[in-house]
């Protein structure tokens, strides 16, 4: 009873957060000084009738609430405006960019989580050994690297061996879909590697300390006394409990992944959301910025929502 209440609460919370972000996006640009009409009718001495016509054309003569309603309607029907820089619909630009970011960030994050868990568990179980010191110090080293620095270093080391920019070889013609896929994957290696190295280290350090704490719990002693095998104790008792805080940590880190993606995509000229935002800032492409931020907000909220649900599934104590 109370558990379904939890899901409800989290769902409502996620929807409300997204709605608040959407509304904030609307308000933000309307509280800026100056009116859109005077900016558009930049001709000197624009006649009042011309201003009125412009206001009618853009719906700016309507009340704030009507405009808000219109904004929401456009948002849900996919009318996100036209990019200033390439005159294409924002939603189409962003769809392409999102399609490029998704594989890099998701593969990078998933590999980093798995690698972080493996390394962290391994070090915790072998606490105090050379292997533990080595992997812990290595993780601290990678954790300390700024993303852009690590990206640059990889770029310098692997330039020539691996493709360093874009998604496809600009000189390749008539690629079959399979060749195209291979080419794309090859271009993905360096950006993904950069993301993995910056993320795994943090995960490994958190998993290690969480595991060490869990291994000192009484139920680990119970499990050993029960005669369970070492593997079973580590899997069902230690890891199962140690990973609970990791779920929250990963969810909280998602915002940072997005900003990391901006740096990585700029360094490797990867045409994803981060890169699109970077260009939009440089060119003051407001509709693109608005749309890009919206997508990032929604993604972060959704992933946090998923983390909440995962936590609910993993920890029977979650009720309140």
């Amino acid at each position: 009873m109370r558990r379904t209440g939890y899901i409800w609460k989290r769902s409502v919370f996620a929807v409300v957060t997204i709605f608040a972000a959407v509304s904030f996006n609307f308000v933000l640009f309307r509280v800026l000084p100056g009116s859109a009409i005077t900016r558009i009718s930049r001709v000197p001495n624009a006649s009042p009738s011309m201003k009125k016509a412009l206001a009618e054309q853009f719906g700016l003569d309507k009340s704030m609430w009507d405009q808000y309603w219109l904004y929401l309607k456009n948002l849900f029907t996919g009318n996100w405006g036209i990019s200033y820089s390439n005159r294409q619909p924002v939603i189409e630009n962003l769809a392409v960019a999102f399609g490029n970011t998704l594989p890099v960030v998701s593969i990078g994050t998933i590999v980093a989580i798995i690698l972080g868990i493996l390394v962290g568990v391994h070090s915790a179980v072998r606490r105090g050994t050379f292997a533990d010191h080595f992997s812990t110090n290595l993780a601290v080293l990678f954790y300390a690297f700024p993303t852009q620095f690590l990206g640059m270093m990889l770029l310098i080391f692997f330039a020539g061996v691996l493709p360093a920019a874009g998604t496809h070889d600009p000189f390749a013609f008539n690629q079959t879909p399979w060749e195209s896929f291979l080419d794309y994957s090859k271009h993905m290696i360096l950006p993904v590697l950069t993301l993995v190295l910056t993320l795994y280290a943090e995960n490994a350090l958190i998993v290690r300390s969480s595991m060490l704490e869990t291994l000192g719990e009484d139920y680990i002693l119970t499990a050993r006394a029960k005669g369970l095998s070492r593997r079973k104790i580590i899997r069902d008792y230690a890891m199962r409990n140690a990973l609970l805080p990791i779920v929250t940590m990963v969810a909280l880190a998602l915002g940072a992944i997005v900003s990391g993606a901006i740096l990585i995509e700029v360094i490797f000229s990867w045409p994803g959301i981060g890169r699109a935002l970077y260009d939009a800032v440089l060119q003051r492409d407001y509709p693109m910025l608005q749309g890009g931020f919206l997508i990032i907000t929604v993604v972060v909220v959704l992933l946090n929502y998923l983390a909440d649900l995962a936590y609910y599934k993993l920890d029977p104590r979650v009720v309140d």
């Binding site: 719990e217 009484d218 139920y219 002693l221 119970t222 499990a223 069902d236 008792y237 199962r240 409990n241 609970l244 993993l314 920890d315 029977p316 104590r317």
Partner: peptide, 9 residues
């Protein structure tokens, strides 16, 4: 209080 694994029945 803590001798049982908290995530298993």
């Amino acid at each position: 209080m803590s001798a049982f694994n908290p995530v298993k029945t």
